[in-house]
């Protein structure tokens, strides 16, 4: 019962993060800020789904498999974001800055 409620909370969190993360891609001005919105919020949402699945399945083999999957995800997701940012940086794309008064 409690596990189901926690899982539902995490699934709704993941839903909110995914939705607003992709809204951020439209709202933000340049490649770096858009990357921040999409990649990092998407990471949080996927990890929320993983946590929800772990809580829901309890202590079993499935949980171990999800732990392995999330370990791979935690390693690979920041690297892909970093590669996109590094490519933009090495191409000489200047980051957008707010104009100072």
């Amino acid at each position: 019962m409690i596990a189901a409620i926690i899982a539902q909370i995490f699934i709704s969190l993941g839903f909110i993060f995914a939705l607003l993360g992709h809204l951020g891609v439209i709202v933000f001005p340049d490649v770096y800020t858009r990357l921040q919105a999409s990649s990092t919020c998407a990471t949080t949402s996927v990890i929320s789904f993983f946590i929800a699945a772990m809580v829901d399945s309890g202590f079993s083999v499935i949980t171990g498999k999800i732990v392995v999957i999330s370990a791979f995800f935690i390693v690979s997701s920041p690297v892909s974001a970093h590669i996109v940012a590094r490519y933009a940086w090495s191409r000489g794309i200047m980051p957008w800055r707010r104009r100072r008064q």
Binding site: T40, I74, A81, W89
Partner: peptide
């Protein structure tokens, strides 16, 4: 570097020896 990228709001652009951008 990965932990900094993982936390939303900061993205590591480059890591050269001990110098982070």
């Amino acid at each position: 570097a990965n932990a900094i990228t993982m936390t939303p709001g900061t993205v590591t652009i480059d890591l050269d020896q001990d110098h982070l951008i």
